[in-house]
Every structure is written in structure tokens, then in C-alpha cells.
Design a binder for these strands. Structure first.
Lengths: 237, 237
DNA sequence: ATCGCCATAATGTATAGACATTAGTTCAGG
DNA sequence: CCTGAACTAATGTCTATACATTATGGCGAT
């Protein structure tokens, strides 16, 4: 291990954040404490913390200290993080309708499930997102219970799984796949649209470090939604 | 301007890169030269250069110096950079068919055109992307001639505008909008698909610094294409 | 109670130096 | 001509210190 010291410190803190030892909002040690713990100069720990800050993992506030960043509203990432937020920003009332909820073991024969949870347990959730009681999207979701055990106790009559995860589980990597499909059969019925309506099919997987967290497939009703993404140099600001 | 010194240095260099004064591959001044020029300590210029390095704008090599990074294949961004690359990766033959090409002044009444080129001249290009002579996507594109004057001379019978731009003009900011639409009329005919086929409508704008470069709207044929995006922490390394 | 002021604890910036590491360059010896 | 060893110029890391900045928590006066 001949990694630079500031890098080792950075990783140590990052690991604690990703493992959940340091939950979102937690205050992390001051630079003084860290420099005492590692027996190094302040600039060294400062460098580690600055790197975490520009990576968006922590927020630093003068006088107050450094805090684990709340799972960001996916700052510059694709903009459909949370349908609830989007709907309410339009001034509509949001509602999540839970259709099914099951716990079962991951099927090793399914690549998606195996990649997500190995042979561990999965929570499968199906539901519909509504805006002003009009269906907007149907959602089929798998969550690895090994990665997010607390989710067993959550009541998804009150909050959608996406919103809950966004607020409670920071992710570090995500993959998103978007395609256009024609809504058919049951899905079309649930969206209250004629069969053949062009819809966006969004499939997303998220990880925290090496552990899979969730897999979602959403079918977004017709022309009700755009996906928007902006990219730019990571502005430290 | 009470910006920190390292930030001012950073911006100065960044501006030179974006303006093209420092072209890709150019070597930039050594830390010693920069600290002499700004009358500051080495750590200060080092901080500026490190920030540029983690932002991917420059590469730093010991003994050799710091160099402007070559226009990266904007790695972690949405993956439809170049349809030609994608098509050939599937082992199909790619062809771009040019339909129209006109030069005209931007219409100040059109928000898109005004934002792109103010009142300057625009190059408008319409064309179709083919894979093995099957139409894949129709494309409607506007390019600001003020931002990219060299493009007047390019023959788009040989290369698609997207591929040419990707290889010649580094962009710094992009916005992308994706929706599902049903192909109708002329567009459906050009894609050789029945009317009503679900297609992906992708609209993209790119900037270099504050200057608009191009606006594109592509209609991607049915289920032929997925858009894939991966996101993760900006790993320095 | 509420408002405003102030001390203070934390981060932010910067300096001047030291030594480590790496990779071009040069030059000697085959 | 080629190879490898030594040199050296550049970045990479780290220390110790100083002062700047700022939000917060407490205290005092309204």
C-alpha cells in the first residue's frame, strides 16, 4: 500500500459513507481530529475532504464542520429521479399506488437478479405513479434486501420506493437505459392509454460501491414526460 | 473579484483552453513558470492544475509537464455520441444520407435559433442515418457558423455532421432531452416504418463555454436503439 | 421572548520549504 | 547502432505555519 496518505484517508471516509457507518447528514470528524488520528498535517486531511466534497459525497460548512451529503437530487444526472418531485413541481398532486409486494430469493438463472443480489433475498414491488389521479407511469422494481435491510419495514402506501430509496440510500453508480416502446395489454390498461401508445421505457440499476441496490423498469406514459440531462465540467462551487 | 488565487489561475487556463488558444495536446507552462508569472507559491498553481486535471481538461505527466487533454470521448455521458461508431460496432455498414443543406441567418423569433447563434448565420442540415441501408434515424441539425466557421467546407456526403463535430469541436456543456413519440407522415416514411411506430425523439444542444455550437433533433427508429447512460463518482485515476 | 452583536470554532486560502517519484535525455560502453 | 546507466526536470506528496472567512451559538439589551 503505497497510496498517498490523503488518498488513504479519503478512501477510509468514503468507505464509511458507502457502508452506512456514516449515514447521510452525519457530521464527520473535524480536520483537527483527523490530523490527530492520522498524525499528519492539516493540509493533508483537508485535501482528502476537499476531494470528497468535489465528488459530492460530503458538504463542508465553515464553522459547522463537514457532513455526509444527503443523497443529492442527482445533481447533473438524468432528470427523472423522483417522479413525485417532478409532479409536484408542476402543481399536480402525486400519489403512488402499490400493486404487489413480495419477498423472495433472487433467481440465479436471471442475470438481472443474480447481478443485483447474488442468491440473497429480493423485495419485488410493482406500482403505479399518478398525477392528479391520472396514471403517469407503471413501475416494476427489485431491491436487494441484503443491501437495504431497513426497507422491509417501509409502508409503500405512503411513499414510493424510489422516493424512499433516494432519501435513505446514497448510490455511487447508476446505469440507465432508455427506449421507446408501444404500450400493450396490461401496461396500457394501467396507464389508461390505448394500446400502441408510444411510451418511454426506462430501466435503471444502481449500486453502492460493488453492491447492487435496486433495479427498476418504468414505463412512462406517452408524451407526458421528457427526460432531460445536462452535462458539463464538474464545477466546484 | 475576490476569487481565490488558485481559482483565478484555474479559470485563466480554462479560458485559454476553451477559446482554443491552447489547443488539445499543447503543453502548458510548468508550475515554476506559472508561479513566477503570478508571483505565488507552487502549491497554489498546483492546486489550479490539479483541479483542471480532475475535471479532465488537462493531463499531467511527471518530468514532461501538463498538457491540454485531447477531446475525450466524453466517457460517462449519454451514449449516442456518434451513430456511426455504434452501427459499426454492431458489424453493420454505416451510411449518412444528406437531404438538405442550407445557410441562412438565425431567426430571432425562434428561441432555439436565437439561443444558438444570436442573429448570426446558421447551417441547417437534414439527413438520414442508415445501417446496412436500412434507415435508422432522421436528423435535423442547426450549427452556428460563428462558432464553427470551418464547417462550411465540409462535404457531408462523406461524413455525418455529428461525427465531424465530435472530432473537431470540443464541447463543454450539453443538454439532452429524450421523449417517446409516434412516427408520423414524412418522418415515418423516411424511416421506412408504419405511421404510429414508437420512436425515440432526442434533442440535444451543445455549447463551448458560453457559445452555442449545435442543436440537433433526431428521431431514432423504433426499437432499434437504446440509449444508455452510466454515472459514477468522478474517479481521479 | 426577540433582536442584534460578538466571540469562536471550524473550514478556506496561501506560503516556503523538503523530499519522493517518475520519465525524458544524454552519454558511455558495448 | 543499440543498450543501459546516470542525470535531471518536472510533477506528487507532505509539513508547519499564518491569516482570512464565515456561520453558529450564546449573551446581552431591548
Amino acid at each position: 500500500m503505497s497510496l498517498p496518505l490523503h488518498e488513504r484517508i479519503r478512501r477510509e471516509i468514503e468507505a464509511d459513507i458507502l457502508a452506512g457507518t456514516l449515514p447521510p447528514g452525519a457530521r464527520l470528524p473535524t480536520e483537527l481530529e483527523l490530523m490527530a488520528r492520522h498524525g499528519c498535517a492539516r493540509m493533508t486531511v483537508s485535501k482528502a475532504l476537499s476531494a470528497l466534497a468535489t465528488a459530492g459525497l460530503v458538504d463542508r460548512r465553515k464553522r459547522a464542520g463537514s457532513f455526509v451529503a444527503r443523497p443529492k437530487v442527482h445533481s447533473m444526472v438524468l432528470d427523472i429521479p423522483d417522479l413525485a418531485v417532478e409532479v409536484e413541481r408542476r402543481g399536480q398532486r402525486y400519489r403512488y399506488e402499490l400493486l404487489h409486494r413480495t419477498v423472495r430469493a433472487a433467481d440465479p438463472a436471471s442475470p438481472v437478479e443474480a447481478a443485483l443480489a447474488g442468491t440473497g433475498e429480493l423485495l419485488r414491488i410493482e406500482g403505479v405513479h399518478h398525477a392528479d389521479d391520472r396514471p403517469l407511469a407503471v413501475e416494476d422494481r427489485l431491491i436487494s434486501l441484503a443491501a437495504v435491510p431497513e426497507i422491509r419495514a417501509v409502508d409503500f402506501g405512503l411513499i414510493s420506493p424510489g422516493a424512499w430509496l433516494l432519501g435513505h440510500v446514497p448510490w455511487t453508480e447508476a446505469e440507465l437505459r432508455v427506449a421507446a416502446v408501444a404500450a400493450e395489454g396490461e401496461a396500457a390498461a394501467r396507464l389508461d392509454r390505448p394500446a400502441g401508445t408510444a411510451c418511454l421505457a426506462v430501466e435503471r440499476r444502481t449500486w453502492r460501491g460493488a453492491d447492487g441496490i435496486t433495479w427498476v423498469r418504468q414505463l412512462l406514459s406517452g408524451s407526458d414526460f421528457d427526460l432531460v440531462a445536462s452535462f458539463g465540467p464538474t464545477r466546484a462551487g
